[in-house]
Amino acid sequence: MAGSNPSTQEYISHHLTNLTYGKLPAGYVRDGGTLESAQWTVAHSAQEAADMGFMAIHLDTMFWSIFLGALFCWSFARAAKAATSGVPAGFQNFVEMVVDFIDDNVKSIFHHKNDLVAPLALTVFVWVFLQNLMDLVPVDWIPELAKIMGIHYMKVVPSTDVNATAGMALGVFMLIIYYSIKQKGVGGFAAELAFQPLPKWALPFNLFLEIVGLIAKPISLALRLFGNMYAGEMVFIIISLLPFYLQWLLSVPWAIFHILIITLQAFIFAILTVVYLAMAYDHH
């Protein structure tokens, strides 16, 4: 538990609050004073972060996700640079295994010619996996370290931030729309939305059904990952409320189980991305 013995409630909500940089409106009552004009600042509490509304950005989410994404790009690009048709060794072997795994899965799902889908799936898989992996770092380590450095909020698992998962899902959604229109034309895509599953006379009903179905794709992508990781993180936080000599009894089995979850969730996100794009290509 955190040093100054905060209440359980405070401890949990502290762990679930992002380091938020955003705009507070003029007249906002803060730290006993009142803001004279609207101000961009780092939120001092969960309430302030919530009051910033849409004009705010989660610095911790951005930092960790970009750090992990850069780590992925750097390490894989290094392996790619060293890649030859000779005998692979060490890290290159691992990278090739991952690439081969993704390639096999993409080939079995996506049968059209497209050189974006496979690297997209690889990026999603590895990036999401790395983000999820941060969940296995004991919940207090990095936040306590940040506190020493003067940063009071630090949520280290980007995929427990719905913005991160929804950001990726939004990207996938845009690609779904793009490829649908590219493959079928605007008319074809609209016809697909309007003239099925029922005949033309049920156009409004069809449109409603298909659009819900379309929008459900990114939302389910985003919320599935977010929900799983948020819940997993929550369990770790609750376990860390136990006396320290008992924590391992629960945290070790949960962490081992979590290894499966984080891999599975990364895999599901990547595969569903490919499936959705394959559906965008197919004519129904």
């Binding site: 910033m52 950005i57 994404g69 931030d161 913005n163 929804a166 939004l170």
Partner: peptide, 13 residues
Amino acid sequence: NINLTLFAQLISF
């Protein structure tokens, strides 16, 4: 909280 992070994440993605 849905906020600008969403778009920042979209861009980094």
